[in-house]
Design a protein around this nucleic acid. Structure first.
Lengths: 248, 248
DNA sequence: CTGCTCTGAGTTGTACTACAACTATAGAGG
DNA sequence: CCTCTATAGTTGTAGTACAACTCAGAGCAG
């Protein structure tokens, strides 16, 4: 039985066949199609399901193994890595925060505090690989899960990579889906992680008393290696469970 | 020209050929054999260098791409991801802390504060998938880089997986190299990340004033899926630069 | 000379086949 | 009941072939 793969998913997915299969398999895994520790179908059967060659399945599985989602055992099969439900909030997967919150079963809302075009600072120019003083778009937002603030973010975009319509979109919804519409979806990010205790970060009456945050200083890159935007994201400690899967 | 691969590296490496090639290529990449953004040899040439099939090279490259070390472009080649030097401290790579410190060019020292066999708590028993009250080995250590404390760690091992000689080794050197000697090297870890401000964590006169730590709550797993040890690792904020590469 | 299109060599992506290496299970034999 | 062995099933590696894509250079039009 074929899944009718390319036709069903040609809109939402992109990249090579192997990448499409990987993304589709990830959805099936996170959707609990197989129980934790359970065995997924063999490579031959998956190849038949998707209507692709076994080598294509293998590239997808290899990627999922490196991400820690599955465990491939020679001569036996591929098994769902037993990490419990928390796998969904994997830090190393570059995904929309709001979307992640929603997939965990909570209600996510985003509020834009300010959005302005200004000149790049020295640090921003260096990260974005542009000249100091070039125009950048700076956005300050907060994200809530089930009504309580979990994230404060300060993002700065290289305006040369954007279009006016995208800039408008970003104030309303997810940054990632907005960038997706002009095929400028970042495929890679480099993040520095810090613990910080500060009263200066958040705003509003819902700002946490403790002032304790997990701070991600990020630079997002396109497939061609160019940086598209940089930002400081502050996760309110205790409100957002951060999981990371470490592999050899 | 062949690298004489299997012979040179059969001691230090393990796993499939693809894993060995991946590990060797990672060393070459981190050793700056190619400049950032530069192109590495083609798959055919690498296959010839290592004396393996192209499909084996591809599995290794695919893994390195998922880890964010390289960027593969269809019809063009594989390029070194331009992240600067900081790639060496990648959080998602499961490696010895002391070894990571040394590779960054600093002097690493480890001090064991205490090492005792006791009964597992409920939480430890759950993480290690053993019965509550089973014997576990609990070790408290601190790690310094260039003389200043960067890490306090509290680790708890499932004693059933250990041998007496390994337990002695672990008090002296790296946990990972000790476990390697009995082929119980963890291949995967699940870590929760927290920001914490506490005076209770560290000890000694070098304990940081701020009490601000990046807290990793980890469970380490063997290839067969069994947990081998769990632990709380506290990184002194500001002393250790944490980098994470996020990919789609 | 400048700028454009097109061609072609080079590279990665996918398909197919074949066999080696390994695993897990069932069954024979003690 | 236990141990060993045979065997079917699965992943790992090799080899070949071609498709899809990239990039630089040749060639042409202006």
């Amino acid at each position: 039985m074929s899944i009718g793969f390319q036709k069903n998913l040609s809109k939402g997915t992109s990249g090579s066949l192997g990448d499409q299969v990987r993304d589709h398999l990830r959805i099936r895994i996170l959707g609990h199609e197989w129980e934790a520790g359970g065995k997924i179908p063999g490579e031959f059967e998956l190849a038949e399901q998707y209507g692709v060659a076994r080598v294509t399945i293998r590239t997808a599985l290899r990627s999922l193994e490196t991400q820690g989602l599955i465990d491939i055992r020679h001569g036996s099969g591929a098994y769902i890595a037993d990490f419990g439900d928390s796998v969904r909030a994997g830090l190393q997967e570059l995904r929309s925060i709001t979307q992640t919150i929603r997939e965990m079963g909570h209600k996510a809302e985003m509020t834009t505090r300010s959005s302005e075009v200004r000149k790049a600072t020295a640090s921003e120019a260096k990260d974005l690989q542009i000249d100091e003083g070039s125009d950048v778009l700076h956005i300050e937002r907060s994200i809530t899960a089930d009504g309580s603030v979990v994230v404060f973010s300060y993002d700065t975009f290289n305006i040369a990579e954007l279009t006016p319509s995208v800039m408008k979109r970003m104030s309303k919804g997810s940054v990632f889906t907005a960038l997706d519409s002009i095929r400028k979806h970042p495929v890679r990010a480099r993040a520095e992680i810090h613990a910080i205790s500060s009263k200066e970060v958040g705003w509003g009456r819902d700002r946490p008393r403790s002032g304790l945050y997990l701070h991600l200083r990020q630079v997002h890159y396109l497939r061609n290696g160019n940086p598209i935007f940089t930002g400081d994201t502050y996760f309110v400690e205790g409100k957002f469970q951060f999981i990371i899967h470490r592999t050899v």
